[in-house]
């Protein structure tokens, strides 16, 4: 069945260099729709770099060079899709909750506004829908005009997820979205991710192996810029094929 399903992303022979340093080595990977794909690995293994390459956030880093290809629905993200359009389709949630210092409403409406939606009624609708999807509507519906900086970290992160959802992306990249949060907020974000995969493709970098095993469908283990092993989460955690993977998930290093 998996074989017939067309992948959302096809990554072929991807290499990435920061100046002389090769951060990603020959990555090949197919990422499926409506699944959670988790990237695990020790610090500096390239998992975040790879995540940022998927919506071309690495373009912002001076001296980056990339070869190989990443295709989104069959189109190369570096040559066939405009970067603005790509980032609209592939949203991102960062490690630190980073709402803009403006009202909750304006935060969520920011994306739609920059894409040209001005009508108040349309914006209202998008804001409510996005906040509901991010499971935070009930907590903030009475204080949409308050500054988003004033709410708790976990709430800020869900506002950031709502902000990403408001531009109606197809894919959501999450870069260690719970590493700055307490266990209860983490639980909420995890439940949310599982809920969201019905409508979105989710790719998540995490340091927390339990998190990967709890919520992801597929897991990729990165080490020194290479993908050591990529497969069904259950298989990776119970029956890793590679010795390095086994060493990592059993906590022998990393």
């Amino acid at each position: 069945m998996e074989v017939n399903k067309k992948p959302k992303f096809e990554v072929n022979n991807l290499n990435l260099f920061y100046g002389d340093f090769q951060a990603l080595k020959n990555i090949n990977m197919n990422i499926s729709s409506n699944e959670i794909t988790a990237f695990i690995g020790p610090s500096g293994c390239g998992k975040s770099t790879f995540l940022k390459t998927i919506n071309r956030m690495n373009d912002l880093v001076p001296g980056v060079r990339i070869d190989g290809s990443i295709k989104l629905d069959g189109l190369d993200i570096y040559s066939d899709i405009d970067v603005i359009k790509l980032r609209q389709r592939v949203g991102m949630v960062f490690q630190q909750p980073n709402p803009f210092p403006m009202s909750i409403y304006d935060n969520v409406a920011y994306g739609p506004r920059i894409h040209g939606i001005k009508k108040k009624s349309v914006l209202d609708e998008i804001v409510e829908k996005s906040l509901r999807q991010a499971a935070i509507w009930d907590e903030v519906k009475d204080r949409l005009k308050r500054n988003a900086i004033g709410v708790s970290g976990g709430q800020q992160q869900r506002i950031c997820i709502a902000r990403a959802l408001a531009v109606q992306p197809e894919v959501i990249l999450m870069d260690e979205p719970t590493s700055a949060l307490d266990p209860i907020s983490t639980q909420k974000i995890e439940d949310l991710a599982v809920e969201l995969k019905k409508d979105y493709t989710i790719i998540m970098v995490t340091h927390n192996m339990q998190q990967a095993s709890r919520i992801s469908d597929k897991t990729a283990f990165f080490l020194s810029g290479e993908v050591i092993e990529f497969g069904e989460t259950g298989q990776i955690f119970s029956n890793p094929r590679d010795k390095k993977t086994e060493n990592y998930i059993t906590g022998r290093f990393g």
Partner: peptide, 23 residues
């Protein structure tokens, strides 16, 4: 101004100019 403001604005598909003028 935190770098994250720029990142999250660009990550939402804003152009550089939009990021500068709005954030």
């Amino acid at each position: 101004i935190p770098k994250t403001y720029r990142e999250s604005s660009l990550g939402l598909g804003a152009t550089k100019l939009q990021t500068i003028s709005r954030v």
